[in-house]
């Protein structure tokens, strides 16, 4: 289990990185944290001629607020998100979800951009980004574009990222302080890839009715899934248990999870309903805190 031969490039800024991508494109793989790529190399499932290591590009690192967005540089590591007060305060859903990513050793190396680009349908960050209707900023030598998760995630481990492009940053919309939020996940063992996961944000108005609902399910389809009917259904409703229970299973038929040895498609669909119910209930409880009716 040793990586095959490759040429190694470590650009010092992203103009250089884009030049290298432009030059090697198809023959190159971008290395961000390497926590998914290096196992793939060790197993020789991929044999790229060139590895472009983005770890020394400081422009791609950091967490900042820009208007109503939290902007996270593509090369920002999970551990930095985990330890960020800004994230904790402004993006609590992400803060809650990030601890589900692998184990400490993985979060110390793995990056936000890397996780998004890897596009594992059961990964936590794509699910949260999708729920929050975030944005992915992609650059190439030619242009810089901003895409939605729906445009970006195409299928299982497949994204719209072209060989000459890289993820510059990922933008998570800030949810209003009054919003309730919850991230729920189940895995066979702690730290394993999720069987399924659910992310939910709920806001209520002064009458205690739901004014906003943002939801995504991960691991239940080839890409993170937004149950839009559920979101619409919830608006204007009081978040009591019956309503949330009903909402959670409304769109299970739209899910088509892949089965594997850890759980069949049918089982994952079943779990999706349970997790969504849990996430909705917890998010609603949080939203109702401080609302006096």
């Amino acid at each position: 289990m040793k990586p095959p031969k490759f040429s190694y490039h470590r650009p010092g800024n992203y103009a250089e990185a884009l030049d290298l991508l432009d030059q090697y494109g198809e023959d190159a793989k971008i290395m961000s944290g390497g926590q998914s790529l290096i196992p793939i190399l060790n197993m020789r499932l991929s044999t790229p001629k060139h590895i472009i290591d983005l770890s020394r590009i400081d422009d791609l690192k950091g967490i900042r607020q820009e208007g109503n967005m939290i902007v996270i540089g593509g090369m920002t590591r999970h551990v930095e998100v985990e330890n960020s007060d800004l994230i904790k305060k402004k993006c609590p859903l992400l803060f809650e979800a990030i601890r589900w990513v692998g184990h400490t050793q993985i979060r110390n190396r793995g990056t936000v951009g890397g996780s998004i680009a890897h596009a594992d349908p059961s990964a936590e960050l794509p699910c949260v980004l999708t729920a929050l209707r975030g944005e992915i900023v992609i650059v190439s030598k030619e242009e810089e574009i901003t895409v939605s998760p729906e445009e970006f995630f195409l299928s299982f481990l497949l994204t719209s990222l072209e060989p000459d492009q890289l993820i510059k940053e990922v933008r998570f919309p800030i949810i209003h302080e009054s919003c309730g939020y919850a991230f729920e996940e189940v895995a066979r063992r702690h730290g394993d890839f999720a069987l399924v996961e659910a992310a939910a944000v709920i806001d209520v108005d002064e009458t205690g009715r739901i004014s906003e609902a943002l939801i995504a399910l991960g691991g239940a389809n080839a890409v993170p899934f937004i149950p839009e009917e559920v979101e619409r259904f919830l608006i204007g409703k009081k978040p009591d248990e019956t309503i949330l229970k009903e909402a959670a299973v409304m769109q299970l038929d739209d899910l088509d999870p892949e089965g594997d040895i850890h759980g069949s498609g049918e089982y994952r669909r079943h779990l999706s309903g349970i997790l969504l119910e849990k996430a909705l209930c917890r998010a609603a409880d949080r939203a109702m805190e401080g609302v006096e009716i």
């Binding site: 189940v186 066979r188 069987l195 850890h262 759980g263 089982y267 079943h270």
Partner: peptide, 8 residues
Amino acid sequence: ISPNRLRD
């Protein structure tokens, strides 16, 4: 006894 099997 995987969760899937038990649930079934």
